[in-house]
Computed example of a mutant assay.
Amino acid sequence: MAVIWENKWKILLGIILAVIAIVWFILRPYPAGDAAKAALEESAVMEASVHDAIRFIPDEEPLAHLIYYPGGLVEEEAYSYFGEAMAEAGVDVWIIPMPLNLAVLGSSRAEGVLESVGEAPVVIGGHSLGGAMASRFAQEHAERLAGVFFHGAYPDEGGRLDETDLSVLLITAQNDEVMSQDSYREGLGYLSAGALEEEIIAGNHASFGDYGPQRGDGEAGVTHEDAVVEIVDITIEWLTTLR
């Protein structure tokens, strides 16, 4: 009898370990690349009061405060190169880490930033799943925000913004094969007619962060660094219209 129970426990332990391995594989995040790590080491400030947010602070009074929600299963550090570049252009940037690297589990985390920023306009947005969750936050806090931006992302019905006065910027990438084009077009229906759409030529879904190739994505014909130059230029031009 003891041998039988011992075998059952071995089988149960094997099943548990297999499940853990599968969950780990599925939830394993895309890590930050070298450019993002360098920016993180050079310029970032960690804000423990806001879930250990990564903050990039400009040298002068900010043009705006920008809250960034990372894409699903992408480490928040991967957006540090973008954050540093935006800060150099005069924007106070907050990159918000998410539980298990999934913004759907932490969509309200931007609340702490709203309690910490100054008088400059505040915008929120993010990449992929992060953008969708940011729009849900924006819908609930529209009176405290000036705009919403989407990087390879779009709102769902739960984050519709067509009944708000928020300015909206959508930046897509020409070779993005991760984002559903049908869902993107549907998402436009949840925005007002004044939403601004821009495209990164030769960019792909992973161009918005420095985390290497993403499964199912198209091939990028532009480096992450060059893509960020375009993204920053587009974003700064948009932000100047909010003041």
Rank of each mutant, 00 (worst) to 15 (best):
H141V: 01
E88T: 09
V123G: 04
G72E: 13
S135Y: 05
F150E: 08
G130D: 13
Y69S: 03
E76M: 13
E75V: 12
F150N: 11
A78P: 10
A146V: 04
Q139S: 13
E77H: 11
F137M: 00
G72V: 07
H141P: 04
G158T: 12
F137N: 02
E77D: 14
G106Q: 05
E76K: 12
G158I: 08
G152T: 07
G118C: 09
G147L: 02
P62F: 06
G131Y: 01
D92W: 07
G130V: 05
V104R: 03
V74T: 10
I95G: 09
P97Y: 00
E84F: 09
E84W: 11
R136T: 13
E84A: 15
L66M: 15
A78I: 05
R160Q: 15
Y79E: 14
E84I: 01
R55D: 08
E140G: 09
I57N: 12
M133E: 13
L145F: 04
W94V: 12
A134S: 12
E61M: 07
D59H: 06
V74M: 05
Y154C: 02
V148R: 06
Y79T: 13
S135L: 01
I57R: 15
G126Y: 00
D92V: 14
E77Q: 13
A110G: 09
L100A: 13
E143H: 06
A138P: 04
R136D: 02
G147E: 01
G72P: 12
P62H: 07
G106T: 02
W94Y: 15
M133K: 03
A142T: 06
G106I: 00
R55I: 00
E77M: 01
G159T: 14
A87Q: 12
V104I: 15
L105C: 00
Y79R: 00
G112Y: 06
F149M: 07
A138D: 04
A153P: 03
V148A: 05
A153I: 04
L145H: 05
I67V: 15
V123D: 00
R160A: 15
E88A: 11
E119M: 06
I67Q: 02
P155F: 10
L145C: 06
A134W: 00
E140F: 05
I95V: 15
P62V: 08
G159D: 09
L102S: 01
E140C: 03
Y154S: 06
A120L: 10
A132L: 13
H65P: 00
I95Q: 09
H65G: 07
D156Y: 02
Y69P: 11
G71D: 10
V91F: 06
F82Y: 13
G126M: 08
F149G: 07
I54L: 08
E119D: 15
A146S: 15
D92F: 04
G130Q: 10
G71F: 01
L129H: 02
F150P: 07
P155E: 05
G83D: 14
I96W: 09
F56E: 13
A78T: 04
G159I: 07
